[in-house]
Design a protein around this nucleic acid. Structure first.
Lengths: 125, 125
DNA sequence: TAACAAGTATTACAGATGTAATCCAAAAGT
DNA sequence: ACTTTTGGATTACATCTGTAATACTTGTTA
């Protein structure tokens, strides 16, 4: 069971590692994250455990070590986050919110063009 | 003290009420929110208390009732949320994320046009 | 002025989260 | 085979959140 388990901030870090490359051992995850963050190895282990408990990631036991892989895709999770972000932010008018959002981001010219392209497609449909 | 207190999901609902209109009495907030949500009046009171504790909102005591008003502006809060949303989501490439983001939203034609307008302005500058 | 009503403040309590440490079992080395 | 190591499972614990209920104060009313 797990329609849409909530992934916490810290857990997201682990998901991101697995989305980049999988399957990997717990140790590989630990190495990456202890390098990027200030977490102790045990902390990362805890996050991994919680994610498996939530069925957000899975593993195959190949001998002593487990090989972890993501169960939830990055797509779904981004979608999920987007939804909760939007409901949180939105007061009614979408525009001021998105304006602030876009202001906040330092978009490159290419990114801007790509976004316009996406919007065009949505527009004509 | 409060550089950037974290506003929880439930607390955001209260902030949104105050951003729409302020100052208001606790009762007005309670009425709005018990109508929109399934919360009991006491629950809303708790949220109000926590927000004052965080200095996210303030009040003037006029007699026995307090008049509440937001201390943090909607702008700052949206910016804040945007930032944490982006750092959470972002793996490196902005595009796939924003694509999913825009896909997810059901934008009206007008909204699409407005966004393109915002993008244009960013683009030319 | 005493009792009441209406707001505010305090307390409650379970589950999520951040951040680990300790315990246990099996693999690996001696 | 016994001990050491190592990785996974269990336990820890404070804070934050969701969701309220109870207690306390002080205007208001009889």
């Amino acid at each position: 069971m797990q329609s849409r388990p909530k992934i916490s901030d810290a857990e997201w870090q682990v998901m991101k590692v697995l989305w980049q490359k999988s399957p990997v051992t717990a140790n590989e995850i630990v190495e990456k994250l202890t390098a990027e963050t200030a977490w102790k190895p045990k902390t990362v282990r805890t996050l991994i455990s919680r994610l498996t408990a939530k069925d957000a990631i899975g593993f195959d036991k190949t001998g002593r070590q487990y090989m972890y892989y993501p169960v939830l895709t990055e797509e779904e999770c981004v979608r999920q986050e987007t939804r909760s972000f939007m409901t949180r932010i939105r007061t009614g008018a979408l525009k001021p919110m998105l304006a602030a959002f876009l202001e906040e981001e330092n978009l490159s010219q290419e990114e801007i063009d790509e976004l316009k392209c996406i919007l065009d497609k949505k527009g004509e449909k």
